[in-house]
Design a protein around this nucleic acid. Structure first.
Length: 441
RNA sequence: GCGCCCGUAGCUCAGUUGGAUAGAGCAUCCGCCUUCUAAGCGGACGGUCGUGUGUUCGACUCACACCGGGCGCGCCA
């Protein structure tokens, strides 16, 4: 808190002495060493450099304008222009009294609250949540807590994967291979089995692949039976999601999955074509580079064999189906008109950075006015690697399920607690094991 | 081939946007328990900041090149 207050006053003084200085570069931070005082600022040297002034003279002039006698002892100019601040005991006492009254010591609420949509977690229906989901979920939930604490308005949205080509195969599996008992015992495992089984058959048998395509078309055209199965798969999956989010303590304001935007997709494509942004290509509809950006920065170009070639964003496949680019465009439009956010954050792993660059670029060409109103930002992160530096997998090569990971963490912690604190009741041990285990994860 | 991310102590990572002697946790070693959580406390040990050039009064930080790891590049998401 003190460094923010000192910083505010220092900026005012710098502004009075050097109106053209970039105040964002004027910063105060805790002193590197006690002999330099409590807080220090190295910024005047940078300001002096930018404005071609003598740093010590600038420091002297700034200090003459700095009103800080109620907080600090007389400020010291050290070396080429470091400022060293020493707090007055009385100022510290006043702050601690405020803290006793409930005010926070380490941050100030945002002066102008922003509105932000945070998109994170986004697991797929009919598949087990795996170890990778913990990062998007943890980072996204941490971000929403921080934004809220600072006084911003947050909408957290779980954009679940509840639509797409995988449902063709799942429907074939559900209709021909479903084991009802297994589904009752562990619905996610059974649905995963169905998908893997049908997927394997599709590789070997064109007829099965064709059947999957037909089931998908049926679903997309509103067939009652397929819609019913699809909804049941979502319901069973949501039970899994809710269980895991409950364990992790993550919350969402809304869960608007991909399917929520289905009805808007044809209109999105028409609109993009009408605006001259998209055009037909090899039976599909795609957005090509408009060559307004340098090739290296253009997400719709890629270098192949020394030449820049198009890598268009597909918004409708040649079979009439839509791509997730289209869904994501519809999603941005919906969020902007529904919540009018200042920012939309996508907490998604770095492998999708290319997709988001393309998405934001295409949206800027589709809705330039809306694009200027909101910042679209991809919050990327790496994947979890094993001890060998390779992506973290089980011994048999499968992805590690999030539920299994959490179970194991609790079990291992439980063993330690039971050994060290046999005097506690089983319930107390279990609760400590949960906290310690998840903390370790 | 082109592009993105990463490389700091044995391990996992910070390093506040170019500043003063590069930090923390864990691990290791030493010292603390007549018990309010020893799942703790104090101390020590530990670094060519991947490598090399360059820019600068000053580089972990910026630029370029290389080495090593991860990832992405038209009808999956």
């Amino acid at each position: 808190m003190f460094h923010l207050e000192i910083e505010t006053r220092l900026r005012a003084a710098v502004s009075a002495v050097a109106p053209s200085a970039d105040l964002a570069t004027v910063q105060v931070r805790p002193a590197a060493e006690a002999r330099f005082g409590d807080f220090q600022s190295n910024s005047l040297m940078a300001v002096a450099k930018a404005l071609r002034l003598n740093p010590r003279q600038l420091a002297t002039d700034v200090l003459a304008r700095l009103d800080i006698a109620d907080l600090c002892e007389p400020v010291e100019i050290a070396g080429p222009g470091f400022l060293n601040f020493r707090l007055l005991p009385g100022a510290l006492a006043r702050l601690l009294e405020q803290a006793l009254g409930g005010s926070h010591l380490f941050f100030r609420p945002a002066a102008s609250p922003r509105s932000v949509v945070i998109d994170f977690s986004s697991p797929n229906v009919a598949k087990p949540m795996h170890v990778g989901h913990i990062r998007s979920t943890g980072i996204g939930d941490a971000l929403q807590r921080i934004w809220r604490l600072l006084g911003h308005r947050v909408v957290s949205d779980n954009h679940i994967g509840d639509w797409g080509t995988q449902f063709g195969k799942l429907l074939v599996g559900w209709k021909t291979l479903l084991d009802r008992d297994a589904l009752g015992r562990d619905p996610i495992a059974e649905m995963e089995r169905l998908y893997k089984e049908v997927n394997a058959r599709c590789d070997a048998d064109p007829a099965t692949l064709d059947r999957a395509r037909r089931e998908l078309v049926q679903l997309q055209s509103g067939d009652a039976e397929n819609l019913g199965i699809w909804k049941e798969m979502i319901r069973l999956s949501q039970v899994q999601f809710d269980t895991l989010y409950g364990r992790l303590g993550a919350r969402f304001d809304v869960t608007l999955g991909e399917s929520f935007y289905n009805a808007e997709l044809p209109g999105v494509v028409e609109s993009l074509v009408a605006a001259g942004v998209a055009r037909e290509s090899e039976g599909a509809v795609a957005v090509f580079s408009d060559h307004t950006l340098p090739p290296k920065e253009d997400p719709l170009l890629v270098s192949k064999d020394g030449e820049w070639v198009d890598i268009p964003a597909l918004i409708r496949k040649s079979d009439g189906g839509f791509n997730y680019m289209t869904t994501d465009l519809a999603t941005i439009a919906y969020r902007l008109r529904t919540w009018s956010p200042d920012e939309i954050l996508y907490v998604v792993d770095d492998r999708q950075s290319g997709h988001f660059r393309g998405l934001f670029h295409v949206f800027s060409r589709w809705r330039p006015d809306d694009f200027r109103k909101a910042q679209l930002r991809h919050i990327g992160f790496g994947k979890i690697l094993g001890e060998d530096g390779k992506p973290f997998k089980t011994r048999s090569g499968d992805t590690v399920k999030l539920a299994d990971l959490l179970d194991e963490a609790e079990e291992r912690a439980q063993k330690v607690v039971a050994e060290k604190r046999p005097d506690l009741t089983p319930d107390e041990q279990k609760e400590i094991a949960r906290i310690v285990g998840f903390g370790a994860v």
